[in-house]
Every structure is written in C-alpha cells, then in structure tokens.
C-alpha cells in the first residue's frame, strides 16, 4: 500500500457474507477504542451504524459523479462517444447523442474523444456522505440513492471524508465483490468476522482469499462461538491467521442488538473484551509495520 507516512492507520471490518455481526464488532470496537477514532459506514446500500450511535448528523453533502451532457448545436453525430462508452452511458443515434446517467461510470472518455467539443461534464447525484460525532467516535456514513447501482463511487467518497490524523475503522459491505474492494483500498488491516457454521467457514475462506489478493494482513473475530464443529480454529491455525476475539453465543447479545444498544456499553464484561480487541489490533498493526 502506498499510504503516506503521516496518515493514521485504517482497519476494515468485513466478512464473506452478511449477518455475521460485522457491524456489531465495528461499533463496539470503536466504542472501546480508548482514543478518538473514526468509524466509516461503507455499507452504503444499508448504512446501519447510526441506528446505534444516533448522533446528529451534519447536513449530508451530496456524492456526485460527473456525467456527460451534450450540446446539440456542436454535435456532428460522428458517434465516437457511443463507440468509446463500454457501459451504454452515452449512445449515438443518427445525428444525436443520448446520455443515460444511470449507466454512466464517470470515466470521462466521451468528452475526451468528442472531436467537436460538444460534450461537457456535469455532476449527477448518486448518494450522500454525512458526518457526526458520538463520544470518541467520529462517524462518516455513506448512503446510496435508492435505485442507483453504482456503489464504489459512494464508498470512495466516504474514504475521502476520513481525516488523516485519526485512526479509522471501516465497516465494509458484505461479500467479496467490488464494493468490498472499494472499501479495503488503502486500509492497513482487515478484521474478518465469522461464525463457527459451515456457511461462516466457507465465506471466511472467500474473504481470506480476497485479503491475500490485496496483500492485507488479517485477523478473525468469531461471533456466536460455541462448539467448533466445522474446524474453524484448525483452518485459522493452518492459514496463520490469529483469532483476536471469540464472542459467546449469548442470546442477551441479540436482544441488546435488537433494541439498538451497544453490548460493550450495556455489559462491562463485553466492554472489556472489546477494549482487549482494540489493544490486540494495535499490536498487530505495529507488528505489520504500521504506525499506530
């Protein structure tokens, strides 16, 4: 990673699939971080963190992407724009060029190849990024407009709102595809949340493969840890991935969660567990050559 020496470290929390308790871990970790920290909600399709923090958010700035606009007076209908576009965001029909902002990826190629200068670019709203403060946590929340399918630019905008001089915890969307990759860019560590079920182990393996592909150091949090019937511990040992925290399968956790509260704040013993997780992560980062 080409992170500048000055920037504080960034930890992404992810899992191969949803529902493993990823957001719970990110939230409680931030609450027990022991120092000011940023928490980024990169699950822009379903941002949930502020349902727990309930901080007053600042006026959300829009996330806009540049899309083309065509001046018909200058368009000579040559079709170069439509020929370039890989996403059908601009289509040349007869002597006109039609723009479909929903399909545009904002590459700027059409404006670049237009020989008559008929194409300029204008901002098109695809989501919002808002910030707020709750105790030691500075929240940065991305939110996609309903019906928009371009997730990565909104996540990029979330990352851009992060301050360099504070550490950050990024709550990634579920899965291992493009939005997750967009979240992990420029992160220093990947914390994977899983549970000891066949689904959990299978999806953890996918997430570990992604971490390897991106050259990211990673550690595991086991949620709903009961009897390990699927060989989760053996897998982590063989892959040399440390298990940094095991949360018991405690119905109280689910109940606290369903009320929109933080388990680390409700039960002191869980508070201690997450404070320990924060300490272990800082050690891991130091060992991985970061500058916590």
């Amino acid at each position: 990673m080409e992170a500048s020496g000055k920037r504080s470290y960034r930890i992404a929390v992810a899992s191969g699939k949803g529902g493993t308790g990823k957001t719970t871990v990110a939230l409680n970790l931030a609450a027990m971080f022991g120092e000011p920290v940023q928490l980024a909600d990169c699950d822009v399709e379903e941002p949930n963190i502020n349902l727990f923090l309930r901080c007053d958010q600042l006026v959300p700035p829009e996330v806009a992407m540049l899309v083309p606009q065509v001046d018909p007076r200058h368009c000579n209908g040559c079709g170069a724009c439509g020929e370039l576009c890989q996403f059908r965001g601009i289509v040349a029909i007869g002597s006109r060029a039609l723009v479909f902002p929903e399909l545009c990826h904002g590459c700027g190629g059409c404006a670049l190849v237009c020989p008559s200068g008929a194409i300029t670019e204008r901002p098109h709203r695809i989501g919002t990024v808002s910030t707020g403060q709750s105790g030691i946590i500075r929240l940065v929340e991305g939110r996609l407009e309903v019906g928009v399918s371009l997730v990565p630019p909104v996540i990029r905008a979330v990352r851009e709102q992060l301050l360099d001089d504070l550490p950050a915890i990024l709550d990634a969307p579920p899965g291992t595809s493009c939005p997750v990759v967009a979240t992990l860019r420029e992160c220093d560590y990947l914390l994977l949340v899983t549970d000891p079920t066949p689904f959990g182990l299978h999806d953890l393996k996918l997430a570990v493969a992604l971490a390897r592909e991106l050259n990211l150091a990673c550690g595991v949090v086991v949620n709903r840890a009961g009897e390990d019937l699927v060989g989760l511990h053996g897998y982590c040992r063989s892959e040399n991935i440390p298990i940094l925290l095991s949360l018991p399968d405690d119905r109280q956790i689910a109940e606290v969660l369903s009320r929109g509260e933080l388990v680390a704040r409700v039960f002191p013993e869980y508070g201690l567990m997450f404070a320990e997780l924060a300490a272990k992560l800082k050690q891991q980062l130091a060992a991985a050559g970061g500058t916590p």
């Binding site: 439509g82 996403f87 059908r88 965001g89 289509v91 029909i93 007869g94 479909f100 399909l103 399918s149």
Partner: peptide, 15 residues
C-alpha cells in the same frame, strides 16, 4: 451479453 443497458444495445442494433 451486455452487463447493463441491454435494451439500449438492442435498440442500437435495430437502428
């Protein structure tokens, strides 16, 4: 075979 914009592509083909 278009990932997105299949209708647009098909319309272009017809035009």
């Amino acid at each position: 075979s278009a990932a997105q914009g299949a209708g647009i592509q098909a319309a272009e083909t017809l035009v």
